[in-house]
């Protein structure tokens, strides 16, 4: 999975997500087929259980919020509310699986490169690239500050320490991140950056990519047609 071209994966998983969303809620067998296929793909990415669970727990609050909204404010009967909840839950989980498989099998820099090569407005991948870069050195600054904090802190690191750290150290982290971003921007200007991000198109679509796209769409389309 990791070696597949990310452009093909973006297209395939986007189509899968679209098919999942437009599938009527009563097509239980289709959802089962989609789910099994996506679980097989997930297994092929050889993920750590912890990373999947962590991502799933990010989805839970959203589902709970939507569920509460349906239960408390929906005008349907109980059975209608249950249908809506089922529809929301099954489609959310399946689309989540699509994104989880994609994210676990695609390093972020390959994803960004794919976005640059797709026919999208250039500003979109450029903004994402900057965001990824800033986030990475923002967390780098937090790590450095935390190490410096712990080195001079005689108490054990616990929640109280974390709150104090956030209260006192974070403003400095933001300031340093801004200063560092200025230096990085200066480095970009020094190498001729003129506002447009140019990168090399080093991705190549091969036989395996077409095979993956074909098999995935066949499974989903057959499930749609037969079940």
């Amino acid at each position: 999975m990791q070696n597949l071209d990310p452009r093909v994966k973006i297209l395939t998983f986007s189509l899968m997500a679209f098919i999942i969303i437009i599938t009527p809620q009563s097509c239980y067998l289709r959802f089962a087929v989609y789910g099994i296929f996506l679980m097989v793909l997930l297994f092929l990415t050889r993920p750590k259980i912890k990373s999947i669970l962590l991502r799933f727990f990010l989805l839970l609050p959203l589902l709970m919020f939507l569920g509460l909204a349906v239960i408390l404010f929906g005008e349907e009967e109980i059975s209608g509310k249950i249908s809506i909840l089922w529809n929301l839950t099954v489609k959310s989980v399946l689309v989540f699986l699509c994104f989880a498989v994609f994210q676990l099998s695609t390093p972020v820099f390959r994803f960004l490169k794919a976005l640059e090569l797709l026919p999208l407005p250039k500003v979109f991948p450029a903004l994402l690239r900057f965001a990824v870069r800033y986030i990475s050195f923002f967390f780098d600054e937090i790590t450095r500050k935390k190490r410096a904090w712990i080195s001079r802190c005689f108490a054990r690191w616990n929640r109280k320490s974390a709150v104090r750290f956030i209260r006192f150290a974070m403003p400095g982290v933001f300031l340093r991140a801004v200063e560092r971003s200025d230096r990085i921007y200066a480095a970009m200007l020094s190498r001729g950056y003129n506002g447009r991000m140019s990168t090399m198109g080093l991705l190549q679509i091969g036989k395996n990519d077409w095979l993956f796209l074909f098999v995935s769409l066949v499974v989903f389309v057959l499930a749609w047609m037969l079940l």
Binding site: F109, A187, S198, T199, M200, L202
Partner: peptide, 18 residues
Amino acid sequence: DQLFMPTVFDDVAFGPLN
């Protein structure tokens, strides 16, 4: 501060592309 692209190849290619 100087290296801001994802891979070494991308970073070295940044200047010539510009």
